[in-house]
Design a protein around this nucleic acid. Sequence first.
DNA 1: GTTAGGG
DNA 2: CCCTAAC
Length: 697
Amino acid sequence: MVFKKRLDYGFNAFSVSNVPRAPRSIRKRDRTKRVVEDSRICAFELLASLAGKLLEEGGSSASSDASAGHDHVSVGKDVKLETRYDDKPLKTECVEHISCDASVVTSDWNTENSDSSKEPKHSEDNAILEPTLTKAPPVCSEQINEYLKYTIQKCNVGYGSFPGNLDGCSPNSGELCDGISENGVKREVETNNYPTMDPLEVSMTFPAPINSDRDVKLPSRSDSVLNASFSRHRNDIKLGSRDDDDKFSRFNKLSNRFKVSRPATCIEDRRIRKLLTSKYWKAAPKLKDFEDSQADGGIKALHRKRKTYYDKCQYDTLYKRRKFFDRSSIVTSDGRIGSENVSNSPEKVTNENENKCPSVAMSHGACEIASLLTGHQASHKSDGSHVKLSIKSFRIPELYIEVPETATVGSLKRTVMEAVTALLGGRIRVGVLLQGKKVRDDSRTLLQTGISSKDDLDALGFTLEPGPVIAPPPICSKEPPLKLPCGSAPQILTSSLVVTPALDTGIPDATPDPPLLTNSAKSVDSYYEHVSSQTDMLTDQNLSESRALVPVPAMNVEALAVVPVNQKIRKSELAQRRTRRPFSVSEVEALVQAVEELGTGRWRDVKLRAFENADHRTYVDLKDKWKTLVHTAKISPQQRRGEPVPQELLDRVMAAHAYWSQHQTKQQGKHHPGTLRITDSEADRIGVVVAIPTITM
DNA sequence: GTTAGGG
DNA sequence: CCCTAAC
């Protein structure tokens, strides 16, 4: 049972569009993969069975089958991953904890506590639902922890083949406790003392880690991240199996390597193809590829200076995200999730709480998040009639990650980071689930909504959803950056997205290894990039020209801050995309004139002749413009967009196109402008080899 | 570095 | 506009 829950909680909430997916073939191969897919459904059962086995076995984690029927995960590999990732302990943990916690918690509850009410939903949802928040489970016994661990492992295996770290899991148990009681929360906080934790992280961490006991090892951040993602994602993420280089490379290319396992297979495939296509992959198939890919994925920065790919990725990501969300929402309703933990003190909830969200100035969504955070604080401090919530985790969409065994830990970290980043990259908003149903009316008070300190907050869950496009505030460059000191965390956190923190923790850690990115400093950059990328996206969508102006949601910013490293690369690359500068009629005329004279195979000459002073018009641009002009001339005026091009020019375009199509560009000498005429060109076509001279008249 | 095309 | 393959 427990296990299942875990799965559910996994970050389903995020729909990371980016979840990279390994090629299907690969997936099949990897047991983890298999597990993931199949196991989702059965995950709970499997988990339960596994848990039972584990209990019986006592500790060997190794081969528990995550999915009874489906797959079994080979713990070994997964484990390996975990260990590898361990590099960074603390932060990752947070993430992991979160993810793990959530699931774990739930499971725990269910099983031990037998809270059918809360858990059931999860279990069904299992995999996916977004249990954004885990409730605080009442029990946090060591046993549970063990269970959790097992489950986690199993889950991981099954699902993503993640190796979930036991630790991470264990934390969960702690989380459960936390979630359950305020004390628990406190604990988390205390436990969270991890050195690095950012406020956000801390908040995230809450749930899990702490515990006791667990001491355990803090999984390296990266690990945690991975685990978290895995667990959350239902295991979409597949770590470890490294299959073919090619495949890897593909993944990388996928841009994101992340895939949302469910939803977007098709899309993902496409992406993957593209990614795969990229040179990079070809060049460095294996580990290198992987890394590169990550880099690429992040942005392809390395290879492509431009962000094109990056953008695409993001778009994809967004797209995917949306899908996830959609799903998740659905799921939610069904199963629900909830994971929020609520430790609620019995007080009444009122709008006030919402209002409290202090600082949230951002978007509405942001506010919600903040409130959540505040909830934590509140729980600690407690207020009279406030609903105290402790959010252990947010669900995020599944992240599907495949990494070759030969991949380096650093690459894995990067990959995870990218996935997370991708998720965060988009605008995120928090969704509130009550009894598995989305609470859409933001104006209602908590009491009105049925959320009161007296009530069972178990039914309350939070999800991260793709936010509507909000008018983003102008990018503030560096402000957001980031990371808050642990102590201050709460307040700061409030302002920042909850999710982010978790991500941050995970990400940064993950990234470090890779040479590509470095640290915090970069984080800022990455942040920027991120923003820019987003902006680009926005611009593209909106057709706005200037990127610089592109606003970025505060949330994003924060999130970005969190995600630093990979992003950086992206940004640089992304940022590069040139702003769109539609050709003016005069430019079109100059182009037409030049082409009439020079033909269509001498773009450099065209450039020199007609656009020598237009630095922003490259010969490639001119070639492309000609291409579009020809197309425009062929379509009906109704189908044309943008500034209308005089028909006269279009006629000339057609004439020149026809003419030059019949003649090799070579010969042309110079034509006097205007000399070329349709009739002439047509006449030429007929077969007569008309030399330029003829045209010239 | 250019061209030519696909995306 | 971007990205690539071919030259």
